[in-house]
Amino acid sequence: MAHIIGGVGTTHVPSIGGAIAKGKQTDEYWRPFFDMFPPVRGWLGRSKPDIAVVIYNDHGLNFFLDKMPTFAVGAAAEYRNADEGWGLPVVRSFAGDPEFSWHLIESLVADEFDIVSCQEMLVDHAFVVPMQLLYPDVDPTGAGAGWPVRVVPISVNTVQHPIPSAARCYKFGKAIGRAIRSYQQDANVLIMGTGGLSHQLEGKRAGFINKDFDRLCLDRLVDDPAALTGYSSEELVELAGSQGVELLNWLVMRGALGEHVSPVSRSYHVPISNTASAVLALAAA
């Protein structure tokens, strides 16, 4: 039977990929950020996930606004990264697990989540940067899929309103959890939620950060995630910033973990580029 080991929430700011490419991890600006990850990696080293289900939002690499799925689930044997237009090196491909993906798709649709299934799917920085952070020993630009886990990308529309509500995202996460736990083959599964925390890139409010709200979210993600489901999308924009709504990806992740979790590691650092960065690792009970 498949077993959910737990979840990791992490920021996915593109400039992190740039810092990795340029080897800046120990620079004064970057060190406090990269120092947040060793405890998470230690836990992953002990719990040895075979599959990572990565909840993220596409920023205009795989999906354009011509067809914008609210929830999309990868079902490919291989996922490639590609040029996003602003100079990040293209990262090596990721091995998928089509059988596991189709089990998720069948279970989710049976559970009344009418997702889009994708047999081809490019993965952007929101997927790639977190994988680089969790697995820094993998040469990101090497050939082939050298990552120690198979992956399932799940994309959430946090770009074009109406975006799915916090309540819906939490329920979606619960359905993902049920789907994984009903998979008959043995596999240790890690859930990742990427993006956030508070930040806003556009308008006069560009540069907006809300530490109080971020800390409240980190608290509630651990002990009472349902408390975050009462916020409307507009309230999330106001409190977390236009792009801080990526918190929704974390809420999907948290939903999949079940009611009780044990915090493994929690850290928060402002700023990375325009963003309040955070890393939260939670072991499933």
């Binding site: 770009v159 109406p162 409010r205 924009v237 106001e238 236009s242």
Partner: peptide, 22 residues
């Protein structure tokens, strides 16, 4: 809802900006 200094990218904006975003 109106949020100062913030432009929510919704359907009306997405329609107006389609060619530019494309």
């Amino acid at each position: 809802k109106t949020i100062d200094g913030t432009m929510i990218f919704d359907g009306s904006v997405a329609r107006r900006g389609y060619a530019l975003n494309k």
